[in-house]
Amino acid sequence: MATYIIGILVTVSLFAILAMSLDLLLGYTGLFTISHAAIFGIGAYGAALTMQAFGWGFLPAVGVALGASALVSAAISLPSLRVSGDYLVLASFAIQEVFYSLLVNLDGITGGSAGLHRIPQPSILGFTLTRPLDFLIAYTLIAVLIFIALSVLVRSPFGLLLKAIREDEIVPQTLGKDVVAAKVKIFVIAGCVAGLAGALYGSYYTFIDPLTFDVHASVLILSMVLIGGMGTLWGPVAGAALLIILPELLRFFPFPSEVLGNLRQIFYGLIIIGFCFLRPTGLVRAR
């Protein structure tokens, strides 16, 4: 039982990091994108390919992953400078689809639909994470550090600027603030964090494929932020925990195997709908 629970908690910590990073865009800055799984994927593929193709260690690989995902995230920020709201939703969705196509079609590099096998486990300073408990401790620690760093960030003047952009872009603009630079910056930061989650993900599961980073993954991360509570950091963490753990609990009900998978998905859908009605601001309310 212990390993099973530890495994779930590792997943929770990974998605908590992802959801926090998306909330920087969604909750704090008011930028609604459906491309977060793409940035997550850049990190995962960046780190895995660096380790496999160049034989580099885990830390340099993470560095490459961060750089690549920051770069791509900055590129995704470009539409957000030009279009907003409904347009950004669709533009980011298009980016998500293009990314997925690239993963599948550039099979010489990415392994195509078959994905990448045997990704090395994280090894830092001669210590390699192998047991589930190692992963839980290390990944939770990283999640906590990110949480602390981001809570400092959102309380800083920069964080306040982001919230001002969310409320009304025109106001900070007339006050002489560089809204464009702020948007690009927050995309880069969110990209780095999501890319890190990607690197950690690949080295835990030791296997990645394009399906891991498709639009459904983007929607899952999005629903974590929304259910948890936008514009907070505890919210995404709570949302990640809820949406990973609740569907797992369903495994313990004696449903016939043929409808089990469907029932779990229906349950996931009902949670989302239920939250929209009963708690539209999420589990954790922004102050």
């Binding site: 495994g7 779930i8 599961y205 891991t212």
Partner: peptide, 11 residues
Amino acid sequence: KAQKGLEGFNK
């Protein structure tokens, strides 16, 4: 999927 597969395996 890899992730759901690992969770199912652990269970």
